[in-house]
Design a binder for these strands. Sequence first.
DNA 1: ATTTTATATCGCAATATTACGATGTTTGTT
DNA 2: AACAAACATCGTAATATTGCGATATAAAAT
Lengths: 109, 109
Amino acid sequence: MGLTRSEIFTDEQNKLSTLLKAIAHPARIAILQRIIISNTCICGDLVGELGLAQATISQHLKELKTVGIIQGTIEGVSVCYCINPKTWKLLEDQLGAFLGSYKGETTCC
Amino acid sequence: MGLTRSEIFTDEQNKLSTLLKAIAHPARIAILQRIIISNTCICGDLVGELGLAQATISQHLKELKTVGIIQGTIEGVSVCYCINPKTWKLLEDQLGAFLGSYKGETTCC
DNA sequence: ATTTTATATCGCAATATTACGATGTTTGTT
DNA sequence: AACAAACATCGTAATATTGCGATATAAAAT
């Protein structure tokens, strides 16, 4: 016990939950918002702005990168992070389909 | 350490991450899909269908109820669960605004 | 070559999540 | 009243997450 029993769910359900889990943290939401807002690619700017330690930010970035939501390019000494359009679209589509499947008929309760 | 430092984030970021965390689990996605699909309100049907123990299902339902995504009405011996339209809309709006804020300009990386 | 700057990784402590058996509670049935 | 059915809650074990100091790594500047 203690670990999610992924075998009993569909690939879609597992995939969607993985993407959702990646963005289900205020720090990672803040990081993504910051990346989206600045048209120039930020990097360690986040450390000064978010109020979390450098190691913590780096770890959150890694999690976002692991599931493919962002991608990082080495730019001299620093690293340039940006949204991975493909994964972002996938998330929008999957989530849109899921959330949109409820039509709010209130046939119940 | 070990606990999210919510104080340093905005209420919107915290609220959204709370809602996202609630749906960021394959079992809870499956439960929500099942609730949406059946126009009649299911309850313990989930236990037989999902392959998780009754205590586990009940716990997942509680989590969804706690953040307000579903609501339960006692219906005799069983409990009728359904989507809370208000929270569902909130989630759609907040998430739509967040995901939609990225326009995929690829000005970067 | 050494130092500085920027980021990543390691290791750890605190806390949270997941899952489930066992037990409690509530309502309907006999 | 006693019993059964449907859920909820408790307690617990296994695992995951969060955060950070310390340390490693890699590129640029001196």
